[in-house]
Simulated assay, not measured.
Amino acid sequence: MGNMYSLRPTALDELDYRIRQVKIDACLVLRNRRLVYRHYRKPEFEREPHKVNSVTKSVLSLLIGIALKRGELPSLGALLSDFVDGVPPDKRAITLEHLLSMSPGMEWKEAGAWGSLPPPGEHEADWIRFVLDAKMTDPPGKKMIYNSGCSHLLSAVLQKATGMTASAYAGRHLFAPLGIDDWDWPSDRQGISIGGFGLKLRPADLLKIGQLLLAGGCWQGTSSFQGSGSRRPPFPACPPRAGTVCTGIIGGSTPTAPSKRPVRASCSRKASRDNF
């Protein structure tokens, strides 16, 4: 990232103090290709894969980009109904881009809307059908509403297009090139990798994905991921932040703090559910 920004001498000490006030399992900070801070609440957390919750969505969007680059998906304008059976007539205009931008026009409540109770969809035998049965409230593309159901539909699309679950596809085309060899990605009752949450990664491996994104798809001198969505992942649009990018808070949904320092951070904590 270069040396145009300085890091205050006390910055890492302040970070360490704050992290130790809460139950952060692991935190890694990389600056100028050098690991400048490492924290593990317990020694075993360095090797233990942690549930990344909604970072799962980010990984899935990269897989969609890879499938597009490889020609296994035609375009972001492809219709959901081309890959998923039984799409109701009122949802047949929904495209992959609508799902990636979480703007399919469906009525949706995330986990937080149900208090401490599991959202109804988790009790359903067929999660895809549960999502497709949601009421339409807007035309596709009009409004973004955070929706883990969109990600699960994308996982089904990827599986249909490639003949592989998202977990297996990630293992071959994303994790293996990055040297990631230990992960867990559960599936629903139909054998579809859960699109919106559930992926488990080791902290150092989450940092690798952050490095890949910041480098625009380059990894260890190669550009094998360029053009696969890693430079501009089709995530929901958010206001731009300067400098620092945090690759994610494992186990919870925590916004990235604004910063002017080119630091790459990967933090892990046990936290609330973020799913449907």
Rank of each mutant, 00 (worst) to 15 (best):
L99N: 11
L100A: 14
S101E: 13
S101Q: 14
S101L: 15
S103R: 15
P104C: 14
E107Y: 15
E107G: 07
E107P: 03
E107S: 12
E110H: 06
A111R: 04
G112W: 15
S116I: 03
L117H: 14
L117N: 13
L117W: 12
L117V: 12
L117Q: 15
P118T: 04
P118R: 09
P118K: 08
P120E: 08
G121H: 02
E122V: 03
H123V: 00
E124H: 09
A125D: 13
W127K: 13
F130E: 15
L132P: 05
D133R: 10
D133T: 05
A134E: 11
A134D: 05
A134K: 15
A134C: 13
K135S: 09
K135L: 07
M136W: 01
T137Y: 01
D138Q: 13
P140H: 10
P140G: 11
P140I: 07
K142T: 11
K142M: 13
K142H: 09
K142N: 06
K142Y: 02
K143A: 13
K143W: 04
M144E: 12
I145T: 14
I145S: 08
Y146N: 14
N147K: 09
N147F: 12
G149K: 04
G149R: 08
C150R: 07
C150W: 06
S151E: 05
S151R: 07
S151K: 08
H152R: 12
H152Q: 09
L153W: 10
L153C: 14
L154Q: 10
L154Y: 13
A156I: 06
A156W: 05
V157P: 06
L158V: 12
Q159P: 06
A161L: 06
T162V: 09
A166M: 11
A166T: 09
S167C: 11
S167G: 12
Y169P: 02
Y169A: 11
G171R: 07
R172A: 14
H173W: 14
F175Y: 13
F175W: 05
P177T: 10
I180M: 01
I180K: 00
I180Q: 01
D181Y: 00
D182N: 00
W183S: 00
W183Y: 01
D184T: 08
D184I: 01
P186W: 02
S187V: 12
S187L: 03
D188K: 02
Q190V: 00
I192P: 05
S193V: 05
I194Q: 04
G195W: 09
F197H: 15
F197K: 03
F197N: 09
L199S: 02
K200N: 11
L201E: 00
R202E: 01
L207P: 07
L207Q: 06
L207C: 08
L207V: 04
K208S: 03
I209C: 04
I209S: 07
Q211W: 15
Q211D: 03
L212V: 04
L212D: 01
L213Y: 14
